[in-house]
Amino acid sequence: MAERNALLDGLRAYRLIAGMWVRSSMTYRTSFVVTVFGNLLVTGLDFVAILLMFSQVDSLGGWSLAEVAFLYGLSVTAFGIADLVLGSMDVLGARMRDGSFDTLLVRPAPVLAQVGADHFALRRLGRITQGAVVLGYALVAVDVDWSAPKVVLVPVMVVSGAAIFSAVFVAGAAFQIFAQDAAEVQNAFTYGGTTLLQYPPTVFGKDLVRGVTFMLPLAFVNWVPAAYVLGRPYPIGLPEWTAFASPLVAAVCCALAGLAWRTGLRSYRSTGS
């Protein structure tokens, strides 16, 4: 019951703060449109790179352009949603250094909601839009015999993927509590993660694939379920049901990240640094 209240409290605070930032960014409409467009361009660059590669070859790691676009669309859309919701977390270390983190702790709202909603920027919709467009293209272009489970898996991947990336953002924030200057480390897992997942798993070494499947289970954002949808073997043999395990993996990741965040916050409050 208390947990549920805290969750509702957090969502309410998040909505209030994010709403304030949205209203304030809307006062300059043209500037808003320009930044959304710019964001779309920046995030689109890595797809242009993939297009350039495919201008030279017909397949990468045995996967066609449409199949790679499918991976890309899923990875970028899921990451884009997590980035929209929690993308401001990377300034946490800076806030601890300048002491403004303390001011969050004297307000009657969960700290995670306050940090996550800070500088909420709708311009991040640019990345989601771009990912969704590529995903749309891929859905039309891939050669798949669509069955009901495969159709259902697409939205399931986007939502679970967003949850998994959100968990990475929260875990990264918890890490920043201990290593304030090392905020960039989380980029390796967030931006690095989404880049990794844009390419077929067959491209990478088996050990790397194992690590991303079992240790930091980013593979459940798209690799494992997408391999099932596309009817391609996953480089390390997994039972078929794992294609549907993404929601479960996402739930576990979120729980662990929440635990890490709590531990971090408790440690901050007992050490003051």
């Binding site: 590669m53 990468l60 790691g61 090392a182 960039e184 480390v185 390796a188 067959t202 491209v203």
Partner: peptide, 19 residues
């Protein structure tokens, strides 16, 4: 932190280039 991040990105890129 930067060294770590650059190394991770390097590994990802190396595999895609090798493919």
């Amino acid at each position: 932190a930067g060294v770590f991040t650059n190394t991770v990105f390097g590994v990802i890129l190396v595999y895609t280039y090798l493919a």
